[in-house]
Write a protein that binds this DNA or RNA. Sequence first.
DNA 1: ATATTTTTTTAGACAAGCCTAAATTTTATA
DNA 2: TATAAAATTTAGGCTTGTCTAAAAAAATAT
Lengths: 217, 217
Amino acid sequence: MLSLAEENYLKAIYHLSDDGAKDVLTNELADSMNTKAASVTDMIKKLSAKELITYKKYYGVNVTAKGKGRALQVIRKHRLWETFLVQKLNFTWDEVHEIAEQLEHIRSPRLIEKLDEFLGFPTVDPHGDPIPDGKGKIKIKPQVPLDQVTEGYKGTIIAVKDSDSNLLKYLEKIGAMPGRKIQVIGKEPYDESLEIILENQKVFVSKDVSKNILVTE
Amino acid sequence: MLSLAEENYLKAIYHLSDDGAKDVLTNELADSMNTKAASVTDMIKKLSAKELITYKKYYGVNVTAKGKGRALQVIRKHRLWETFLVQKLNFTWDEVHEIAEQLEHIRSPRLIEKLDEFLGFPTVDPHGDPIPDGKGKIKIKPQVPLDQVTEGYKGTIIAVKDSDSNLLKYLEKIGAMPGRKIQVIGKEPYDESLEIILENQKVFVSKDVSKNILVTE
DNA sequence: ATATTTTTTTAGACAAGCCTAAATTTTATA
DNA sequence: TATAAAATTTAGGCTTGTCTAAAAAAATAT
Ligand SMILES: [Mn+2]
Ligand SMILES: [Mn+2]
Ligand SMILES: [Mn+2]
Ligand SMILES: [Mn+2]
């Protein structure tokens, strides 16, 4: 049984590690959790004692198989609730993340099964992020951040980062939503800003924006 | 901004006081919250300092206007979520109370407004309990516990107590649900058990059961 | 009216989760 | 390689919400 704080740390470690691909440093975690390094050290000791993460002093942490499974359950809940909020309650995609941060901690396996069914077993959330199944299985499509493609690129938007409300409102305004076709016409070498085509409209986006748009490879 | 624990105490005080009608004693509160009297004393000092309750040492507590308002907001959320769980997710009425105990603490005024709208602005929850409106206004129908009516009584079930899952399953089995017509044929003086008619069927219920059924006066 | 019982409050302690400041370890630099 | 800088951990402390045991107040019984 994990506390709310433990679930949040575990989720952050999972995300920062890129699904376990790389270790997470204490300060990274402190930044992402808006806490201090000392608090992080306290918590990673607890999670390590529960064998949810591996911890090598001074060298960072990563999720164990058990920890990854728990993190994915929380992420599943988060994304199902976001889907509910947008599809059933008519929230816009920039409003749902904060509420889902609370709802993801509601403890009831049956609730999440029933919610999944009510939503028609969705596979992606409103931001294009994949929803893990009940066993924590997740299907990740090959994808790349838009700032890493070359001039002339043509593809489709798979997902966008969902945490910043202002970014999401902006992306919606320019039509940068999952499923939309996108082309890169030009890239400015100085600041890596891009000229792109979305919905037959030319738009300029800065690198700060393009790195938050995930597209097909 | 109230903590989860503060909200739960406030709600318990509101309920135990019968909408503010009578004062609540420390031990009553300790029983209902499954804590110890010493813990209750600590918390009522906090709530009293925040002017959510009135507190006279050794003589109990009651909600202030402010405290009652806050309690009713939590109760509103609880009952709307219960309604959602039954009407949209197909839970049975005996399964929803515990989940609603968690969901009632989700903080988002817009969420509860949208949920209310999604549910079609229901006025009662699955157990027949009235749902306070956004301002905390609540319409209570004249009602009396079934154990207090006399032989020959004829009326309608308004609501049932919703906290015990086994009680609710039993009530459903005998057809004792809000809206159903009910008659009292006989009352046994020894144990105050009742012979009643529900759905044209004679049923015997003990006083333990009848006191949990609220009927029209 | 006094003594006993019950209820409530106070005192002191503990775990979770956070903090600041100091100590330690690692990394970067000269 | 020695030193400086940065990152991390440790030490000690704070708040919230809980507990047990002891003290105080109120209610009950004699
Ligand atoms: Mn989100
Ligand atoms: Mn999302
Ligand atoms: Mn309930
Ligand atoms: Mn109810």
